[in-house]
């Protein structure tokens, strides 16, 4: 699981440009599902199990995209301005490195560093430096980089005890949970429902991939797998989750009020199978479940999250035990015929 996580979190995949991640996942789940397709927006849709008389069609979504940035202007000196792809926060930017698809590495700087380093800055006061040398006018040579090129943070996976640290844990760790759950189901052969594992696109820019894939699949139940901000960072008041305390079962966030019977189903299964869990309320935010639950006539939906410190930074930190708990809970749902719903 660690090798897969390392591979996926280090992959390149800003919103709308998930093709590299998709290719890796396709390779990984080949043989783990009964059917696989890619839709118009680029969602990878994998079916496991079949619809029989009374069982459920369950959509389980994890998003492949990660926050990124896109070049919006190249100034006369050859510095790049950018727009954010997803929630990019100014305090996380200075000195960070970003990677373009063609392999170019950029450095983030901001206007008048020595005059402004103690001030609160806005995203549009930062720029990317991709200089490969000087051009004929003494400005930066920007190589092949042009307006409209996307980039993501560049950072390697680290392991520290049971903690895993990387960029884009949000939400490649959700993809890992989905893949490992698929593997578990393959091994056990116990699939009680028609389960669509959907590796979605463009979650970070407004849950767009989940919107179209949920419409096409028209599931009975929706589940999003995502990270959730941990409440055990210093003075965090938005939520109460803790690293290492188990899978976070969502009660409510900014995008969904989870129907009580869905969260109860998850909690019951966790207790029955001895899977550590915690209840989660998040004051803001939203996941793919936000889109799924409002599809057509409504889809009762929930969220299983991996608590994560420093979300939307290059050091998103999760605990391996929580990831395992999420895998177990997803597999338990997919293989339990009577979900009590």
């Amino acid at each position: 699981m660690k090798a897969l996580t390392k591979k996926l979190v280090e992959a390149w995949g800003p919103p709308g440009y998930e093709h590299h991640v998709r290719a890796m996942i396709e390779e990984e789940v080949e043989g783990l599902c009964d059917e696989m397709r890619v839709d118009t927006l680029g969602n990878l849709i994998c079916r496991v199990g079949e619809k029989t008389g009374s069982n459920k069609r369950i959509m389980i979504a994890a998003h492949m995209d990660e926050i990124g940035l896109m070049v919006s202007h190249i100034d006369r000196k050859g510095y790049l301005r950018f727009e954010s792809l997803g929630g990019l926060f100014a305090p996380t930017l200075m000195g960070n490195r970003v990677l373009f698809e063609n392999g170019t590495v950029g450095t983030l700087g901001f206007d008048d560093f020595w005059g402004n380093y103690s001030k609160a800055l806005k995203n549009n006061e930062f720029y990317i430096d991709v200089s490969m040398g000087s051009d004929e006018n003494g400005g930066n040579d920007v190589g092949d980089i042009k307006v409209g090129d996307p980039a993501v943070f560049l950072r390697e996976f680290e392991e520290r005890g049971s903690r895993w640290i990387a960029k884009s844990m949000d939400d490649r760790i959700g993809c890992v949970v989905a893949i490992e759950a698929m593997r578990k189901l393959k091994d056990s052969g116990k699939v009680a429902h028609e389960v669509y594992f959907v590796f979605t696109v463009q979650e970070e820019v407004g849950v767009r991939g989940a919107t179209t894939s949920a419409f096409a699949i028209d599931p009975d139940i929706g589940i999003a797998l995502d990270v959730t901000p941990a409440g055990d960072e210093i003075k965090t008041t938005a939520t109460d989750t803790r690293l290492g305390k188990g899978a976070a079962v969502k009660i409510k966030d900014g995008g969904i009020v989870v129907p009580p019977e869905i969260s109860a189903m998850m909690i019951n299964l966790a207790e029955k199978n001895g899977i550590p869990y915690q209840r989660e309320i998040l004051r803001f935010g939203g996941t793919d479940a936000k889109a799924i639950h409002l599809t057509r006539s409504g889809v009762p939906s929930g969220v299983i999250s991996v608590p994560c410190r420093y979300v939307h930074t290059v050091s998103e930190t999760v605990d391996r035990a929580d990831v395992e708990a999420c895998v177990d809970l997803v597999a338990a749902i997919a293989s339990t015929a009577d979900l009590g719903l």
Binding site: V257, H293, L294, T295, R296, S297, G298
Partner: peptide, 16 residues
């Protein structure tokens, strides 16, 4: 249902 959290119930019931 769920008007106060973003007009959500009306969205699905109108579809339904």
């Amino acid at each position: 249902v769920q008007e106060e959290v973003g007009l959500r119930g009306a969205q699905t019931v109108a579809y339904h």
